[in-house]
Design a protein around this nucleic acid. Sequence first.
RNA 1: GCCGACUUAGCUCAGUGGUAGAGCACGCCCAUGGUAAGGGCGGGGUCAUGAGUUCAAAUCUCAUAGUCGGCUCCA
Length: 587
Amino acid sequence: MEQVEKMRHTLSHVLAAAVQELYPTTTFGVGPAIEDGFYYDIDFGDTKVSDADLKKIEKKMRGIVARKCEMAKREVAREEALEWAKQNGQKYKVELIEELPEEETITFYDLKDPRSGEVLFADLCKGPHVKDLGEVKAFQLMRTSGAYWRGDEKREMLTRIYGVAFETEEELEAYLARQEEAKKRDHRKLGKELDLFCFSELVGAGLPLFTPRGTILREEMSELSLGLRGKAGFKKVWTPHITKVDLYKKSGHYSKFGEELFMVHSQVNGEEFAMKPMNCPHHAQIFASKPRTYREMPVRYMEATTDYRDEKTGELGGLSRVRSLTQDDSHVFCRKEQIKDEIRQLVEIVRKLYSTVGMDKLRARLSYRDDSDKYLGDPELWRMAQEQIKQAAMDNGLDYFEQEGEAAFYGPKIDFMAEDALGREHQVATVQIDFVQPERFGLEFVNEKGEKERPVMIHHATLGSIERFLSVFIEHTGGWFPLWCAPEMVRVLTVNDKTEEYVGEVEEVLRGVVLNEPVQGNELRYEIDRSDDSLGKKIKRATEMKIPVVLIIGEKDAAERVVSVRTREGEEKVKLDELRGWLERKD
RNA sequence: GCCGACUUAGCUCAGUGGUAGAGCACGCCCAUGGUAAGGGCGGGGUCAUGAGUUCAAAUCUCAUAGUCGGCUCCA
């Protein structure tokens, strides 16, 4: 274990020691080191502990660190350990000790003051730790939160105290600066500032409303995704937003996700409908609508459509997790032998899209099943599908890692994780192999021998959910969108009202601009700010709105037949005759 | 859903039991102004909603809704 991890782990003991001193009646859960820091889960009983209390806990911790306490390891017999835990009312520790395998040596770590010999905190722990607190460097408590004991929502809710720790003050400062930067780029903040989307209490939590600007952004993304898939042979389909629940009973979704369905009740005949939470069963019904031959395989459908999921309220947040989510969803119905080529094609689409939006760093998570019973279908088919996914990952040179227990209930997945400008990874696109739904819906086609054959379904979403994608994209760009998808690509600022005729000529040029990449036939979206505010103020406003190209027109420009072009890179004069070409080349 | 915090003008936020504030934005007027805020005047709030305590509530209590940080979940 690395030194910094040991230090973080030791700090969780220091945290516990401080808490024990300040709140003597607490019960302790577990306190591990995590990325960037540490936490301890603590049961404070009826005492409420919140972020406001962190200061005094941290102060106490610093006091303990200053005493240069040592971390003394000792082996303890099982009975003795149990006795200690029971006597101290540490029920969580009792549970942990009881679950330790018989053969395991039980160790404790004592946080001990070397001068007085006083033990500040003794804890069941297998270590390792730093030798003494002289090795503890930069740390800070960050926040409190609730956390279920053992991650089980049916068990007690403990209070988790999070801290961060680094080997140098500089690293800690850098970490805090990164947090600040992330806060500035928060898509919820930018969504408001750039006038992209909003929420209304009257509409409801997790139901975003998109403004004209935000709608442009959504649709550019959707068009990009549809365009790429269209070129790859996907046909656009349309499906209704409500359906009889029978569809999901048959597909297998109902038993797993029934609770999260929004129900719609017919007042005419009492029939129960559900808002659709996903689209695969619908697409399967289109495939099943007529006899199919091997000659038309693979059949590829795509749709950008909104699904509705009744997520638990506490899980909602900005655009990252909503109750109305739009998927750029597609389904391939193909033969087993075609899986390989289809996946290759989908991987290309994913790569193309993410390089277009400036997120080239992609990792693939191969999401397999585990041995729990939450999966449907023949385990042998699962094994085959997982093998194919791994083969596809290798064949396509994906930077991949494997993870059990992450599969969908109907099949394994390749989940793509994109890295953003701050180095954070976000799950975005997905490719999933499904033998279950074709079986459950009895899908088939006639093969060369005139026999019925069962197709395989490949689920794919390139953006994933457009809302979640936008949350990632907004934070990745910090709101500085590339020209092609910027809601307002160009803003013209007038210096005064004496150049109206020339502004008209400039506008004529802007109207003629056609941007061809990456979305076909895009017209230039521009606004003209003729308000009688000062030029400085207009520039400030345009900059705050993160307009990629700002054209400034005053009497000097008119006289020279140029425009002053201001972008993030700097400012230049462009001749009116060359403006169209300049804009069409700009990305 | 669970734990904790929060909700005051369009936005960002002051305001700890005694008649609701600032900056920006908005409107009007003046200024025709050249690279991130020109000047003046003005309008705007059932202090999230509902109930309670109190002579008196933005302020204290409870409930509801919403937001945020986590936990759990994520087809």
